[in-house]
Design a protein around this nucleic acid. Structure first.
Length: 586
RNA sequence: GGUCCGGUAGUUUAGUUGGUUAGAAUGCCGCCCUGUCACGGCGGAGGUCGGGGGUUCGAGUCCCCUCCGGACCGCCA
C-alpha cells in the first residue's frame, strides 16, 4: 500500500509471514547497536520500527559502513526478511529482522539536540525550536494521527446528518464585543484594516438566512488574547449551525456527535449527558465547568439566602458573606503538613481565599479543628453532619466573599480530586450546562456585556426583564463540559431585527453604531431569517480530551505558539521590510 | 497589567553558610566486543554558570536591572 519507487514496505509492515522475501525499506536511524563485526540498526518511520542486521557474514564492507551511521540518518536498504533467533515482543515487527545486502544513505543528519525517544530528554523550549524533530517522536505522531481521525469521525457523523461544509472568509471586518481582533492592513485601502475572524459566527447565521439549514466547518479562528496551556491565538473550531431547531434539537444532535467520536476513536460508550443549570453548577461545584468524575460537592453553612451558623463571636465566620466547604472522604488522617499545604494552596494570590478552616472528624468520633477555640465540639459535629460527612472524613471550610469563596472551593476540590486520584484518565463524564445568564455587568467598562455573544437569544419568560432586570435574564445558551473542561458552547440565536436591536441597545450601542458595525446581519434578518441555533467545539481541546483526557493542547497542534504568542521555530512575529510597511500605509 | 517558578557541558540536572580545580547522568568522539534491542566494557573531549551592573579579599551562590522559557490571575462574547 505504501510501496513507492523508493520502498517496497514500511518499517511497520513486516511479519513472520514475510520471511524469505527481499524487501526495500526507507526510514530514519533510530538506534544503532554496533558490536565487533555485526551491527543492529533500528530503522524508524511513522509506521513502526524494523531491526536491520549488518554482518560480516553477509557483506564485510557493508558491516563496517554501518558502524559509521549516525542517529537520524535517512536510509534506503535492501535485504532479506528472516525470522529472529531472539524475538522482541515489544515491537510489532519483533519476530523478524532484515539482513541488509544494500545500503544507500539518502541523507545524513547532524546529531539531534535532544533524543527522539518517547520520553525525550529535551526541554520545552528546545523542542519547540526544533518542532520538526519533536514531531518525529512517537507520542506526538500519535496525537496528530489521532487528531486526523477525530476530524474524520466528526465529518463522517455530520455528513451522515446532512450537514454541509462551507468555507467562510478569513479577511473580515473588525467588530466590537468579544475578544481583541487580530488585524491585517489593507494595501489597496491605506489606513484601513481587515480583522481575522474570532469565529465564523455571523457568516454561519447568514448561511442560515440563505437556506443552508445544516452547516458545519472545521475552521481556524483567531483571538488576540493572552495564552494559556489550553489557549492559542489561532485555534480550530468545529463550527456548526442548524435552522428550524430548538435547544433540544441541538443538544440531541451534538450529544450524538460526541458519542460517535468517542465510539470511533476510544471505543468508549459515553454515559448519558446530564443537564445542569448554570445556577446549580455554581452552587454545588463553585464553577460553570464542573468535573463530575467525583463528588466532594460544596455544602453551605451560610450563603446569600440562609445562615445555619450559630453566633460564635469569631469574625471570620460571623462577618463572612458565605461560609461553605467540602467533605473529603477518609482524609481526617491528613497531617499538619498536608493541611498547611492546602491552606497555602487556597491563599495563593491567584485564588485569594483568606484561609482554610479544617474539621477533622476522627474515627473515634472525636473532633479536631482549627477553630475549636471558638466553636464547641458538639456544634462542630452538627456542622459536620450537614456535609454528609462520616467519622474519618475531613471537612474543609472557607469563609468570605461569595464569588472568591466558591472559586477557591472549586479549585480546592479539583486539587484534592487530583491528589486522591479521583480524576481517572480513562473516565469521561460529560454534562450540558444550560440557562446561563444572558448578560453580565462589566465593572471596568461600566456596562452590560453579553456572556456568550450578542447574537444569543433569551428565555421567552424573561423577555420583559431585558430592559428592567438584565441580570435576571436567562440565555438560551448551553456549554458542553467534559471532565471539567469546556469543550463546546452555543445558543439559539436571535433571528429578527427588533430583538437584535434590543440586544445591541442593552449592550450600549446606539442605533447608528449598531447599523455601522452590524448592519449586514440586521438587514439579513429583514429578509426571512429562519429560527436557528448552533454550537462550536474547540477542536484542539476536544482532541486533547478524546485522545489523552488532558487539558493542554500544544501537543495536539503541529506548530503551536509559546505563551508569549511567539513561534520560536520561525521567530515570529518579526519586523517587516520598511518598504512593505510604507506600501501598507503604516 | 500583575503573581509565582526556572535559566549551570549538546541535553537533563546537582551544587551546602559566599571559599581549593563546578559534579553526575545521558549524548558525542576513540578503542574493544558476532545476537543486541535503553547492548556492554575501557578511555577522551566538552562549561562566558542567560546577559549587564553592584556588594565583597573572593560570587554559580547575595543585591539591582535586563533577556529568555514555563505556570497562573486579569483577559479570552
Amino acid at each position: 500500500m505504501h510501496a513507492t519507487t523508493y520502498r517496497t514496505h514500511t518499517c511497520g509492515d513486516l511479519r513472520l509471514s514475510d520471511a524469505g522475501k527481499e524487501v526495500t525499506l526507507c526510514g530514519w536511524v533510530f538506534r544503532i547497536r554496533p558490536f565487533g563485526g555485526m551491527t543492529f540498526v533500528d530503522l524508524r518511520d511513522r509506521y513502526g520500527i524494523t531491526q536491520l542486521v549488518f554482518s560480516p557474514q553477509i557483506d564485510a564492507a557493508l558491516a563496517r559502513q554501518a558502524e559509521q551511521l549516525g542517529r537520524e540518518d535517512v536510509l534506503q536498504i535492501t535485504g532479506q526478511v528472516v525470522e529472529r533467533s531472539n524475538k522482541n515482543p515489544a515491537l510489532t515487527t519483533g519476530d523478524i529482522e532484515v539482513r541488509v545486502t544494500q545500503l544507500r544513505v539518502l541523507n545524513t543528519s547532524r546529531t539531534p539536540p535532544f533524543t527522539l525517544e518517547d520520553q525525550t530528554d529535551g526541554g520545552e523550549e528546545l523542542r519547540m525550536k526544533y518542532r520538526y524533530l519533536d514531531l518525529r517522536r512517537r507520542p506526538l505522531q500519535q496525537n496528530l494521527l489521532l487528531r486526523h481521525q477525530v476530524a474524520r469521525a466528526v465529518r463522517e457523523f455530520l455528513d451522515s446528518q446532512g450537514f454541509v461544509e462551507i468555507e467562510t472568509p478569513h479577511l473580515i471586518k473588525s467588530t466590537p464585543e468579544g475578544a481583541r481582533d487580530f488585524v491585517v492592513p489593507s494595501r489597496l485601502n491605506p489606513g484601513q484594516f481587515y480583522a481575522l475572524p474570532q469565529s465564523p459566527q455571523t457568516f454561519k447565521q447568514l448561511l442560515m438566512v440563505s437556506g443552508f439549514d445544516r452547516y458545519y466547518q472545521i475552521v481556524r479562528c483567531f483571538r488576540d488574547e493572552d495564552l494559556r496551556q489550553d489557549r492559542q491565538p489561532e485555534f480550530t473550531q468545529i463550527d456548526c449551525e442548524m435552522a428550524f431547531v430548538s435547544r433540544e434539537d441541538v443538544l440531541q444532535m451534538f450529544e450524538q456527535m460526541v458519542r460517535h467520536v468517542f465510539r470511533r476513536i476510544r471505543h468508549v460508550e459515553l454515559p448519558e449527558f446530564p443537564r445542569m443549570s448554570y445556577a446549580e453548577a455554581i452552587r454545588t461545584y463553585g464553577t460553570d465547568k464542573p468535573d463530575l468524575r467525583f463528588g466532594m460537592t460544596l455544602h453551605y453553612l451560610k450563603d446569600e439566602h440562609a445562615n445555619l451558623l450559630e453566633e460564635h463571636h469569631f469574625p471570620v465566620l460571623d462577618q463572612a458573606e458565605v461560609v461553605a466547604g467540602i467533605s473529603v472522604p477518609g482524609a481526617a488522617s491528613f497531617t499538619r503538613k498536608q493541611l498547611d499545604e492546602l491552606t497555602d494552596f487556597v491563599r495563593r494570590p491567584q485564588i485569594g481565599a483568606g484561609g482554610l478552616i479544617h474539621i477533622r472528624w476522627l474515627t473515634d468520633n472525636t473532633i479536631k479543628s482549627s477553630i475549636d477555640k471558638y466553636v464547641p465540639a458538639e456544634t462542630l459535629l452538627s456542622y459536620a453532619a450537614k456535609f454528609e460527612a462520616k467519622p474519618g472524613d475531613l471537612i474543609l471550610l472557607i469563609a468570605g466573599q461569595a464569588s472568591v469563596t466558591r472559586r477557591a472551593l472549586s479549585e480546592l476540590r479539583l486539587e484534592l480530586g487530583r491528589r486522591l486520584g479521583l480524576r481517572a484518565a480513562d473516565q469521561f463524564m460529560p454534562v450540558w450546562i444550560v440557562d446561563f445568564p444572558l448578560l453580565e455587568f462589566d465593572e471596568q467598562q461600566r456596562r452590560w456585556a453579553a456572556m456568550h455573544h450578542p447574537f444569543t437569544s433569551w428565555h421567552p419568560d424573561d423577555d420583559a426583564l431585558l430592559e428592567t432586570e438584565p441580570a435576571q435574564v436567562r440565555a438560551n445558551a448551553y456549554d458542553l463540559v467534559l471532565n471539567g473542561v469546556e469543550i463546546g458552547g452555543g445558543s439559539i440565536r436571535i433571528h429578527n431585527r427588533t430583538d437584535q436591536m434590543r440586544m445591541f441597545r442593552r449592550l450600549g450601542l446606539s442605533e447608528q453604531e449598531a447599523e455601522q458595525k452590524f448592519g449586514f446581519i440586521l438587514n439579513a434578518f429583514e429578509y426571512g431569517a429562519p429560527p436557528h441555533g448552533g454550537i462550536a467545539f474547540g477542536f484542539d481541546r476536544f482532541c486533547s480530551m478524546v485522545i489523552a483526557n488532558q487539558e493542554g493542547i500544544r501537543d495536539f497542534i503541529a506548530f503551536p505558539k509559546n505563551n508569549m504568542g511567539r513561534d520560536v521555530m520561525l521567530d515570529a512575529p518579526s519586523d517587516i521590510d520598511p518598504e512593505l510597511k510604507k506600501e501598507l500605509g503604516l
